[in-house]
Design a protein around this nucleic acid. Sequence first.
RNA 1: CGGGGUGUGGCGCAGUUGGCUAGCGCGCGGCGUUUGGGACGCUGAGGUCGUAGGUUCGAGUCCUAUCACCCCGACCA
Length: 418
Amino acid sequence: MDMRLSKSFIKTKKNTPKDEVAENAKLLIRAGYIHKEMAGVYVYLPLGKRVLENIAQVVREEMNAVGGEELQMSVLQPKELWETTDRWDDEKVDNWFKTKLKNGTELGVGLTHEEPIVDALSDYINSYKDLPVYVYQIQSKFRNEVRAKSGLMRGREFLMKDLYSLSRDEEEHERFYEKITTAYHSIYARLGIGDITYTTVADGGIFSKYSREFQTLSEVGEDTIYVHEKNEIAVNKEVLNDEVLADLGIERSELTEETAVEVGNIFPLGSKYSDALGVFYTDENDEKHSIVMGSYGIGISRLMGLLAEHFADEKGLVWPVDVAPFKVHLVSLPGGENQADQLYAQLEDSDIETIYDDRDMSAGMKLADADLMGMPLRIVCSKRTATEGKVEASLRPTGNAELIDTGDLSAIQKLLES
RNA sequence: CGGGGUGUGGCGCAGUUGGCUAGCGCGCGGCGUUUGGGACGCUGAGGUCGUAGGUUCGAGUCCUAUCACCCCGACCA
């Protein structure tokens, strides 16, 4: 992909709109990653789109690894399905976006997909041989939040991965529940927040005693959790009581209070939805059984906001390598244009994704932009480096510069892996 | 949905007790000089002041309504 800044419409900004307060949105707007369409609704510009895709890809790989099959549900949903499970009423679920067909038929705009998933899969599930089934999608969700805030962290339209499991019994469900907990941790580890993300005991709703949240420590979080450092778990403030402590076999005094961002939540659903929608399976003896379900969410766009804000420094964004829209930010300064052109061609031929700042602008502005945009590795070509037959490489997190031989792609690769 | 606040060129802001042609910085176009940390000179384009009513000789400024946005709270992935 040719990504020369001189040809792209992307531009950085010095000022951010004054009505944007959340640090993640401010940074991403200034750096040219997103555009604010309205409160809680953002447009993903080319750079932002690539970040979103990269995060989604990490999630996708881990979901596939535990047997997930990706599909895409519809955003428009029929009212009847939700009436079956008594979730259509605004009294029950108050953040629906609802709309109507020309003939007056009411429709829901997807905010979650338990009912439609069960309904769609009912065509394919009859026997015990058809189970278990693990399906997921990565799709925009719409929720009519009374108050959008915190930039990408709480929008009205947001990208989410939701997986649904349909198992033969509690035991089979349990096994998958544990497996996906492990998969979630792999995801957070790959995104660079593994060490500050805790499996957290949270409210289980009506289906089970507890659900599991995945909470990442961050001052910008909306949740308060109590971390048990030794056991590497946490308890959401909402459910912190003697009973929970007893269930977990821990003491109140061992917990420390932290602020965190919910980056995932997994729920045991029992057979509420499958029963209500009349979807069962028959076993070897031709006996009818309920299907045990679970649902598993990860907010992709929220993660983007969190990562943007978490890794940023006073100069701008700092992306983890796996998430960065481009791995290398190549900058040409006067006298280094030819050297940079050549290197760009080489990088293009290899699979090292590179954004090339070939604009005719002052050095200070180009270097500041490179910092702001936050690619992991910056390479500068200038009169100085061209004369020496070297290029200057510096890693964004540290800023430490070193000279490497022109065209030494393996040195570049090595730096990216460090 | 309760409380608080803000709407003036693309962005950030100023605009006096109502007064004359609505300013400034950044950004943008042209020309020239510059070039390792957000360069400079000259020059130019761009706004019926959120919207709709009203008061007044006269409204960015006062009144009413309305819309949008932000913050705190409640709620939520």
